[in-house]
Design a binder for these strands. Structure first.
Length: 845
RNA sequence: GCGGGCGUGAUGGAAUGGUAGACAUAUCGGACUUAAAAUCCGAAGGCCUUGUGCCGUGUGGGUUCGAGUCCCACCGCCCGCACCA
């Protein structure tokens, strides 16, 4: 008898699939296509369990769709540009290119044994000149259509290293290498005009029915449509009026100051004339550029001395303050502060001793605001004590609408719809990215590179011994001639944000070697992605940028109309977590240990007890990692695949435990043994055949439903139950053989290698990977009787078994005759009798 | 600070508003064995006064004949916040 030996059989079946070309995708108009895609990995150097989980889920979908007659596209590539390669070059030497391609080779080597149904012939890395050259072509097309432009934007500036820092390189407001306090500094940068699509990107969210509601909600809030009032405050001096935008114009009579951003033109204009103001602005510009850093920073204000007139009362003067929590990017970069109904404004006014004026109270609480602003929901009715648009008791929203009408009628303000979504800054002052294909010419200005000169390749001879962008200090790379006039010119040395790379790779997979960004015939056949799978951390940026790119690519003729929303269905999976094992060193500092070095709560080497910290995301620094390579070499890929799918619902985190992996391995061994016994048994029909076949059809129904709805853990629970039923069954050999072959098929998306073994053992035709998915026979699923629980006052007290379609009146009679009910009623009548057919009976007494 | 999500036995989790704890892990008991491993069979939310008992899905309220599920508030954890990928 053969052993269950994944080490031997897994490579065998992988070779068989390769030789049969099972997963090579070619256009075939005769079959429905299905495009399943997992978010491609960054080539960090080693695969981790999160990858295994992500790709196994995609693989289950892909294999299931093959079995149900689809022509499946399931590609894989590498999100290969980005900072880690440059950081590695700085830390350990070498070249980002060598580091990246080396990592790709290693990771591919580690992924192959998983037996994924990937069409590797379509593989590419975003750092391949062939890929980024086409990306440059896209950039030029976008430029021509007015979808790209240049403007100033702020970056994190490290004044010691004299370099731009990414947000993640800013730690507690300081540069990660120099430790210097980071400043915000303006640079001229390239932007995609995603804001032109704000409304469309928002409205189209409603069509994404197969996306998680939470992702759509997050994008809705991110795009942030708001209707408010835009109007101007006249200055008491001769200066230009200050235009503000507010979503709460109804609180205008509670205004106590006008606030402008430190980046507002007025602030900038005054900066040169006042050393005091310059010092304040320097202070206000300290810290990182993230919204979080700005909003949690201590509130700072500076009185400009400018005074403005209140639009409703020219005698009422308000001071103009510069405040560090006002963003230049949103609205007009200027607001009026209403401290009574905005906590930030209140904190600011208390700090600088500005007045606090209530404009409305709750209907039954007229306490003036002290330290907590009164901010009821806009749908709640409030009582106005300071009103001007004719309302006394109204909701906030009614008051806002009335105020906008009032201001428009009087002609001093306008209702305006604004979006929070900002244009997408794509410039990065870094080497390892896609060069922006433009040239700066003294005579012609900014000139696009000619398409025939693409790709603009990154130079190989660069060094990383200094901070900053090596392209900037390269002796010759910048030198070029102007594509327009031929005069000596300079290449743009900024490269593109790596989000650009990942915003169209899904389209490139449909024709990865095309000489244009896409091939319309291929794109038209394969697009859209039918099922996209990835982490929730990409809920906003990556997915929103991709939606923008798909629209822009359509405008430029690179994608069909139907691909404006490129991902038909989205699934966001959870992380893989593990317990953390910790001891303390002589200085009481934590020391972490790998799970493989710990046995029974003690260090295997020394016997020292470890502290066990509850599960957290696997991370190298906490050493709570399990290397998939080790798991596959000791248990095989099927065990790893089975376990990551079995223990948790896929959208939630899964905790990796050694015991769980061991149990998964044991279970697969058990299935293998059952198959061997069944294969060896002599046929002799028994009276138990039908019962087993009924279980089989129920399993087909439940597993199919589980796989289709991403209930992989539920599908696996059914497979366990079906395996138990099969093992205990007294059915004849032929029925058992049929049940076992079906079990192998139902398991094949999760454990493809073992399933091939069993399929072959039981004489299945061809590969199970290519066999048609089993169909549940409705007739075998019908149950004739049903057990109904009987509740008395909502608590389960008894149960009855009745015919499945027994009339409601009959069920009521039987229920009322039940001992427990008779006793509880004690001769009386029930107040109410609820019968939910097929579900439950509730007697209310 | 802002936006989004999650919270059920010792553990991972199951449950279209309708019998809470399916399935699995760990545990305990039994069979097989000289013994162990492997395998197979079985038990099991908590509590007590062992009953037709009480309690029980982060905490506190609410809606409902009925709430893990819906609503409100709070607590804890996770994701995102535009230059990490």
């Amino acid at each position: 008898m053969a052993r269950f030996d994944p080490g031997v059989t897994e490579p065998k079946w992988q070779t068989a699939w390769d030789e049969a070309g099972t997963f090579t995708a070619t256009r075939d108009e005769s079959r429905p296509k299905y495009y399943v895609l997992e978010m491609f990995p960054y080539p960090s150097g080693r695969i981790h369990m999160g990858h295994v989980r992500n790709y196994t889920m995609g693989d289950v979908v892909a294999r299931y769709k093959i079995a149900t007659g689809h022509n499946v596209l399931h590609p894989m590539g590498w999100d290969a540009f980005g900072m880690p390669a440059e950081n590695a070059a700085m830390a350990i030497g070498g070249h980002p290119k060598d580091w990246t391609y080396g990592n790709i080779a290693t990771m591919k080597e580690q992924m192959k044994p998983l037996g994924l149904s990937i069409d590797w012939s379509r593989e590419f890395a975003t750092c391949d000149p062939d890929y980024y050259g086409q990306q440059q072509a896209l950039f030029l097309d976008f430029l021509e259509k007015g979808l790209v432009y240049r403007k100033n934007a702020v970056v994190n500036w490290d004044p010691v290293d004299m370099t731009v820092l990414a947000n993640e390189q800013v730690e507690n407001g300081r540069g990660w290498r120099s430790g210097a306090l980071v400043e915000r500094r303006e640079l001229t940068q390239w932007f995609f005009k995603i804001s032109d699509f704000s409304e469309e990107l928002l409205d189209a969210l409603d069509t994404l029915e197969d996306w998680p509601a939470k992702v759509r909600l997050m994008q809705e809030n991110w795009i942030g449509r708001s209707r408010g009032l835009q109007f101007s405050f006249d200055r008491t001096d001769a200066g230009d009026p200050i235009t503000v935008y507010t979503t709460r114009p109804d609180t205008l009579l509670g205004a106590s100051f006008v606030g402008i951003s430190p980046d507002h033109p007025i602030a900038k204009a005054m900066e040169a004339d006042s050393t005091e103001l310059a010092a304040f602005l320097k202070e206000a510009r300290k810290g990182g550029t993230t919204e979080e850093a700005i909003e949690t920073a201590e509130k700072l204000g500076y009185d400009t001395g400018i005074r403005v007139r209140h639009p409703l009362n020219p005698d009422w003067e308000l001071p103009v303050w510069i405040a560090n929590f006002i963003l230049m990017d949103y609205g007009t970069g200027a607001i009026f502060g209403c401290p009574a109904h905005d906590q930030r404004d209140l904190d600011f006014c208390r700090k600088y001793d500005l007045p606090v004026i209530d404009t409305f109270f709750g209907l039954d609480d007229q306490t003036p605001v002290k330290t907590e602003a009164f901010v009821p929901p806009k749908t709640e009715k409030v009582k106005w004590i300071n009103h001007f648009a004719g309302l006394d008791v109204a909701t906030g929203q009614q008051a806002i609408d009335a105020t906008i009408d009032f201001a428009e009628k009087q002609g001093w303000g306008q209702g305006v719809t604004k979006f929070r979504l900002r244009d997408w800054g794509l410039s990065r002052q870094r080497y390892w990215g896609c060069p922006i294909p433009v040239v700066h010419c003294d005579a012609c200005g900014v000139v696009p590179e000619k398409k025939e000169n693409l790709p603009i390749r990154l130079p190989d001879d660069v060094s990383f011994d200094k901070p900053g962008n090596p392209l900037d200090r390269h002796p010759t790379w910048r030198d070029c001639s102007c594509p327009a006039c031929g005069a000596p010119a300079r290449r743009e040395t900024d490269t593109m944000d790596t989000f650009v790379d990942s915003s169209w790779y899904f389209a490139r997979f449909t024709a990865p070697r095309a000489e244009t960004p896409t091939d319309m015939a291929e794109a038209d056949y394969w697009m859209n992605v039918d099922q996209y799978i990835g982490g929730i951390e990409h809920a906003i940026l990556h997915l929103l940028y991709s939606r923008f790119f798909a629209r822009a690519m359509h405008i430029c003729g690179h994608l069909p109309e139907k691909s404006k929303e490129p991902f038909n269905a989205l699934f966001t999976q959870g992380m893989v977590t593990h317990e953390i094992y910790q001891t303390r060193d002589a200085n009481d500092r934590p020391v972490y240990h790998l799970p493989e070095d710990v046995e029974d709560g003690k260090l295997a080497a020394t016997g020292e007890a470890v502290e066990i910290i509850p599960s957290a995301k696997m991370s190298k620094s906490k050493k709570n990692v399990v290397d998939p390579v080790n798991i596959i070499s000791s248990y095989g890929a099927d065990t790893a695949r089975w376990f990551v799918l079995s223990d948790s619902p896929p959208e939630r985190d899964v905790e990796w435990t050694a015991a769980g992996a061991d149990a998964a391995f044991k279970h697969l061994g058990r299935v293998w043994r059952i198959a061997e016994e069944v294969a060896a048994a002599q046929d002799a029909p028994t009276g138990e055949d039908e019962a087993l076949l009924r279980e089989m059809h129920k399993a087909i129904r439940d597993v199919t439903l589980g796989v289709e709805s991403f209930g992989f853990n539920a599908a696996i629970a059914k497979l366990y139950a079906f395996t138990n039923a099969l093992a205990k069954s007294k059915a004849g050999a032929e029925a058992k053989r049929q049940a076992t072959k079906t079990l192998a098929q139902l398991m094949s998306p999760m454990t493809p290698h073992l399933s091939e073994d069993i399929w072959a053992l039981l004489g299945g035709e061809g590969l199970v990977a290519e066999a048609a998915w089993p169909q549940a026979d409705e007739a075998m699923l019908v149950e004739n009787t049903v057990t109904l629980p009987i509740q008395i006052n909502g608590k389960r007290r008894s149960e009855i078994t009745v015919a499945k379609d027994l009339a409601k009146e009959e069920v009521e009679k039987i229920a009322l005759a039940d001992d427990a009910v008779v006793k509880a009623l004690d001769g009386g009548q029930p107040k109410k009798l609820i019968v939910v057919p097929g579900r439950i009976v509730n007697v209310v007494i």
